[in-house]
Design a binder for these strands. Structure first.
Length: 525
RNA sequence: GGCCCCAUCGUCUAGCGGUUUAGGACAUCACUCUUUCAAGGUGAAGGCACCGGUUCGACUCCGGUUGGGGCCA
């Protein structure tokens, strides 16, 4: 293969969602292409002719763009081998089938499904592996005429070699041997003229001069017949690399969108989902498994993950450079990636580890960047207005700063909606009020703090901190009593970040309002 | 059912015959720090599926068993 340019591809079907497994396959293809200054192709396997083609494809295009896995040839990009939609390539497939027929690599078969089934049943009874007898094969005009006179309609079958072995040199698995006597004469074109996957896939790979086929292991068993097609058609053979599955948590099953409910029984999935649902609720997003599913890339985009974090995590799901390097920029991945180091065993998806990567990437962003990431969520939730006023932006930045890594994904900002809602609408947790505000001593503390907030008070964080401390010593209570009373009054909750930060974020007036209101509420209970 | 693939801590993995009392990361647990909640710091627990063989020596090589997965039916 030496000097052949590297051309790789992914060939997804427009399914309306971008599965994580596809994302990882895309990533590995992308990395391999970039590393070799090659071409990354996106070809759409839409032979099933779904309705709303464009709509069903959009999530995949969007997912690839969001992840920064730009394709060089394909939809919206064009390229020298257009079209990149299989539904528009029937002429190519027809020509390929005719060539296969002409060279004897395929034949017209006039058997009825019942006849095939009968043969299969006989083989089964004899305890043999079924292999079609080719009894209704027609290779000459006379045979054709004879069968057609009987009213039969043909399909096109591959005329697979009936002896020998085929060895696929897989770049990840090494040599894989197949016994050709066990291969079936698979149909490549149905009676209605439509083409089967193996045909379209192999023909396109040949036509598009794909040099390396990097795809999921589910295709490994199908490789011999694709190789047969490729060879019969005279295309140079690409190299193959079969990737292990992205598996579901706790098993080696392929991760599936449909089994979300089961995954949610696991703590690590549940935690992620709870976090995401809190965001979705405030954004009024539907949380049906079809539209909001952690198995799908879109989910992470919606909740405010950084694409870099997903990329990094996905890269390590089935590949490792060495025993210690965990954090890679995309450039580093392009430099270090190698198919030889891809694992052979399925790797199960762990949302917790993904989240750990996310936190790391998030915290690497300086506050102004995190602030910008977070603003769209506040706007979408209707907590702030567009355009964002400078003082609001400043306040958000202060929240982001104070929250630190409590804001793990951008959508987590919505946890702090209490800073944005009007003082009189703040929801106070009754239990928290009961404990930290209602007792006489606690009320007195709040009143004292209120009194200390004079007009001329130098309103800075250190001043607030010492105010809290002084108040505690003066009243002979623990600082915690003061800070918790304030916290509940100001945020409605008994947990959150440093109390001086809360005070500073709200500002003197709002702090006064909220203390006053908390005292009133406490009075009523 | 036939064929193919796979098998190191709960999870992702390093390990490509001796450097290994099997290393790291996430998660877990304990302790610590702490003005709540997080975070931080320190530490702990936890694994080579099994059985044979090859070899002076196997996590590493070979065979088998078991288990898991895929493809074709």
């Amino acid at each position: 293969m030496g000097n052949e340019p590297v051309r790789v591809r992914i060939a997804p079907s427009p399914t309306g969602a971008m599965h994580l497994g596809l994302a990882r396959t895309a990533l590995y293809n992308y990395l391999f292409a970039r590393q070799h200054q090659g071409v990354f192709i996106l070809r759409i396997d839409d032979t099933d002719q779904v309705r709303n083609q464009a709509e069903m494809l959009e999530p995949i295009l969007n997912g690839l763009r969001w992840l920064g896995l730009d394709w060089d040839e394909g939809p919206k990009k064009g390229g020298p081998y257009e079209p990149y939609y299989q539904s528009q390539r029937t002429a190519v497939y027809q020509a390929a089938v005719e060539k296969l027929l002409a060279c004897g690599a395929a034949y017209l078969d006039y058997a009825s499904p019942e006849e095939i089934a009968a043969e299969r049943e006989q083989a089964r009874q004899r305890g043999e592996t079924f292999r079609y007898s080719r009894r209704w094969m027609a290779e000459t005009a006379e045979q054709k005429a004879k069968f057609e006179a009987q009213g039969r309609k043909p399909v096109v079958r591959l005329k697979m070699p009936q002896s020998g072995t085929m060895v696929i040199e897989d770049l990840i698995r090494g040599p894989v041997e197949f016994d050709l006597t066990l291969e079936q004469d698979h149909i490549v074109q149905r009676q209605d003229g439509t083409f089967l996957y193996h045909l379209t896939s192999a023909v396109d790979d040949g036509e598009m001069k794909i040099s390396h086929i990097i795809r999921a292991e589910e295709h490994l068993s199908n490789t011999p017949r694709q190789v047969f097609i490729l060879q019969a058609l005279g295309y140079p053979l690409p190299r193959f690399a079969h990737l292990p599955f992205v598996a579901e948590p706790g098993s080696k099953n392929k991760l599936s969108k449909r089994r979300l409910k089961e995954y949610l029984k696991r703590a690590e999935f549940k935690e992620l989902m709870t976090r995401a649902e809190a965001i979705a609720r405030r954004l009024n997003l539907t949380t049906s498994p079809d539209l909001f599913n952690p198995v799908v890339v879109d989910f992470y985009q919606k909740t405010g993950f950084l694409p870099e974090a997903l990329i990094n995590y996905l890269a390590l799901l089935g590949w490792a450079l060495d025993d210690h390097t965990e954090y890679f920029t995309k450039e580093e991945l392009i430099r270090s990636f190698s198919l030889e180091k891809v694992n052979r065993a399925p790797a199960s998806f762990d949302p917790q580890k993904l989240l750990a990567f996310q936190v790391r990437y998030m915290m690497e962003q300086p506050v102004p960047v995190r602030t910008e990431l977070v603003l769209p969520y506040l706007i979408k939730a209707g907590l702030i207005k567009e355009p964002v006023a400078p003082e609001i932006r400043e306040m958000v930045a202060a929240i982001v700063q104070a929250a630190g890594d409590r804001i793990k994904v951008a959508g987590d900002i919505l946890e702090y909606e209490y800073f944005f809602i009007p003082d009189e609408q703040l929801a106070l947790d009754p239990k928290a009020v009961q404990r930290w505000v209602a007792p006489e001593g606690q009320k007195a503390l709040l009143a004292e703090f209120q009194a200390a907030l004079t007009e001329d008070l130098n309103f800075t964080k250190p001043v607030i901190e010492s105010l809290v401390a002084q108040l505690a010593t003066a009243t002979n209570t623990k600082p915690m009593a003061v800070s918790q009373a304030l916290r509940v009054a100001l945020t409605g909750k008994d947990y959150g970040f440093a109390i001086a930060d809360c005070v500073m974020i709200l500002g003197k007036d709002r702090v006064r309002n909220r203390i006053r209101r908390a005292l009133t509420v406490a009075q009523q209970t």
